[in-house]
Amino acid sequence: MKSSDTSAVHIDDLTKVFLSRDGRGVHALQNIDLDVRSGEVVAIIGPSGCGKSSLLRILAGLDQVYEGRVRWNLAAAEGNDKSRRGRLTSATVFQSDSTLPWMTVEKNVRIGFAKLRLDRADAAARVADVLQLVGLSEFPKAYPHELSGGMRQRVAIARALATRPHLLLMDEPLAALDAQTRLVMQQELIDIWRQTHSTVFYVTHDIEEAVTVADRVVVLSARPGRVRMVRDVETTGASVTELRRDPAFGDLTVELWNTIAGEVGGSLAAAPNGEPGSTKVGVA
């Protein structure tokens, strides 16, 4: 995917501490410096508990208590004032099912427009567009409980896309789906982003998924999360299945795994309440 040199959002020396239930300070993220360029897909991976989701929640505006700065470059967005007004700064696709069960598919998408004050025609056109994009054109009146898990996640993706966000935030969006659906959805996401020229911040724990979808992979260290490695990914435009045939895909996956494995091993060893008898991951 083509990314420009202009920054979409710049994360500047960000540190996050939160209080645990028993009142101890927990250091989640430390001195994160990261630049997301307009039009690129950045995947964040790291051992569990490394603060990837905390970082995403900060960008999503769900968490507003942190040290450091998040600088949005909204002026970089193309288009005139009017089209800029019709966009959210960020929109999020969550890991768990985030469709609202009391609304139809169409209303679930429209709820994202609440702040944008779109005129009627624009709103209707956007709904039609995104439902087409995620393959749900035939189900605007369906309720989420009538859809499969994969389809519900498509609704959530459609809702986020419809707000034309400057930054599309995805928090392990495919983690709750079965392996086959996941592969299909990875391909669809890549195709969709290409069509919508989205800037994407993609949190995942799946290394292969990160390599598959991203232009750049950021590896966070074990808690407190720091930027351990930033790795560009050559995008070839091959399909997600073809990509797996590429030796470079395997090499990169292994390289990233080796980077993370050290962190995972470290965090397991440090975990005070690891299950007895659980196998420790070998440190590479």
Binding site: G61, A91, F94, S96, S98, L100, I111, A114, K115
Partner: peptide
């Protein structure tokens, strides 16, 4: 996650009450 949706999409207070909080 319903609250997260309301916040992430910056729903105005009354819209949030009517479309998310009460139905949930």
């Amino acid at each position: 996650v319903y609250k997260d949706v309301a916040s992430a999409f910056e729903l105005p207070r009354l819209v949030r009450l009517r479309t998310i909080t009460v139905p949930a």
